[in-house]
Computed example of a mutant assay.
Amino acid sequence: MALLHRAELTPGKLDLLAPWLPARPWYRGPAEPRLVKVSAFRFDDPAGAVGVETLLVRAEEGGPVFQAPVTYRDAPLAGAEAWLLGTMEHSILGTRWVYDAAGDPVYAAALAAAILTGGTEAREEVSVDGVLQPRTPAMSVRGTGTAGAAVPPVTAVTAVVEADPTVITTDGLELTLVRVLDGGPRAEGAALLWGEQALALVRDM
């Protein structure tokens, strides 16, 4: 379950992404984009410490949809300075360090588990005056694996090749993250799907 709060964020999520996105080698669009959120989904951190959210954004009308997963932490992630988008002030949780999730092992572990075990996006609940209220996720994703399948432990990201797809090497497996979504057919092999669009795959090491 992803526990959310009705809160003010300063700066907002798109405000952090707007200067970061044009510097990516896989980006194409205006140099100073005015981003529009297309959709989003979340994964659970089993430890309940890290927020894991995937944002789908568009930089211009009619332009491609970009996949930008991020993680939210209550303290800096050691050794991950290259993946830091910036900090935001959360009106309830305080300062949050926001990272490109490609460099965060919590994201890699959650993504691998969803793909290999046939998992889905996290169930969402919003805390309103201390009362939890269910919220329907904005989009649905599914892994092509099998419930109960073995998932290699992931505790560290050892390398990232920042391209499209982005290749994430961990101490347990390799993942590829599709950055530019074109609505193409589902990929062969173990993948995370949004409809027929492959969002990410597990690579053999």
Rank of each mutant, 00 (worst) to 15 (best):
Y27F: 13
V167Q: 01
V202G: 07
D164W: 10
G62L: 09
W97R: 08
E89Y: 06
L116F: 15
L85D: 08
R28D: 11
A23H: 13
T71L: 12
A122T: 08
G145A: 07
P134F: 12
P185E: 08
T95P: 07
V141E: 00
D44G: 01
G189C: 06
A59F: 01
G130P: 11
G183W: 09
V180M: 00
T146P: 02
G48E: 02
P76S: 09
E89W: 09
D74W: 00
L9Q: 14
A122Y: 10
V38R: 05
Q67L: 12
P30A: 13
G119H: 12
A163H: 06
V141T: 11
G62K: 06
V178M: 10
H5E: 11
L132M: 14
L193W: 02
T146S: 13
G94R: 09
D44L: 02
E81D: 15
P105F: 04
P153Q: 15
V57P: 01
D100I: 08
Q197C: 03
A31W: 02
G148C: 11
A18N: 08
E61I: 08
G51E: 06
G79N: 07
G184P: 01
A187S: 10
E196P: 02
E162T: 08
S39P: 01
G62M: 07
W20T: 06
T146K: 13
P19K: 07
L199H: 02
A156K: 13
P152M: 12
A163P: 00
A190I: 01
A109F: 01
P33H: 03
T10M: 12
W26E: 13
T87A: 09
S39T: 13
H90G: 10
L16F: 07
L181S: 04
L4C: 07
Q67A: 14
L93E: 14
L35T: 07
E121Q: 14
L84D: 03
A75F: 02
L55N: 09
L3W: 02
R179A: 10
A113E: 14
T95Q: 14
W20G: 01
